[in-house]
């Protein structure tokens, strides 16, 4: 997993609520058996017409908007557990998704992919969406060690929560599996001492 420290970037606004993982990466693109290449089909049915031409009006086809931060409505990533959704966002160049809350499985998948799910209040989200929509070149700064999202033009820094262990993992590029493997002895002891056995 790549390391994450700080990110200075503009953002792409997609202020719809309940964006599900079937929209992020439709099921027909899940036939690949590798982790790479899903970015080309990110939001495929919103982004492309059936003949493959870009759809006008979808934000990823709007040259005014670009950057490594996606601004999305509440309950982002609901639905299927497919980690391919997080891979597709990451593969397409996104490093952070900002929303007022995330679906549980997506949040975990994003963290395991090195994609930061950054939760803000609904009020902050709405202000960010309004700002970025009208001023696409607005710079945002995500400082992971400090756990702040800064909007320099507002002279405002907004704190965000993150589990301290997951924070260390992101900063250092560690996977959960490294930690779990280090717990092998405890796991074996647990198996031997469990009160019942199926």
């Amino acid at each position: 997993m790549d390391k994450f420290q700080t990110l200075h970037s503009t953002a792409v606004p997609l202020p719809l609520e309940n964006i599900d993982t079937d929209q992020i990466i439709p099921a027909r693109f899940l036939k690949s058996t590798t982790r790479e290449g899903f970015g080309a089909n990110l939001f495929a049915d919103w982004r492309y017409a059936s003949d493959g031409q870009p759809k006008h009006g979808f934000v990823l086809n709007d040259t005014r908007y670009h950057g490594q931060i996606l601004l999305a409505g509440q309950n982002f990533g609901c639905g299927s557990s497919r980690e391919h959704a997080a891979w597709a966002l990451y593969d397409a160049g996104f490093k952070v998704v900002i929303s007022s809350y995330f679906a549980d499985i997506f949040r975990g998948n994003a963290l395991n992919t090195g994609l930061l799910p950054l939760q803000v209040t609904e009020e902050v989200l709405q202000r960010l969406v309004a700002r970025v929509t009208h001023y696409p070149n607005t710079q945002l700064v995500v400082d992971l060690p400090a756990q702040t999202l800064t909007v320099p033009v507002w002279e405002e820094s907004i704190g965000f929560d993150l589990d301290p262990y997951k924070k260390e993992c992101l900063i250092n590029g560690y996977d959960d599996i490294d930690y779990l493997l280090s717990q092998q002895a405890a796991i074996t002891t647990y198996e031997q001492q469990r009160p019942w056995n199926f």
């Binding site: 975990g108 998948n109 395991n112 992919t113 930690y179 493997l181 717990q183 796991i187 198996e191």
Partner: peptide
């Protein structure tokens, strides 16, 4: 669970 967690359970029978 996501695929990274599938790997974790395969290797350690556990999740964090």
């Amino acid at each position: 669970i996501g695929t990274s967690q599938v790997t974790q359970v395969m290797a350690t029978q556990c999740l964090l």
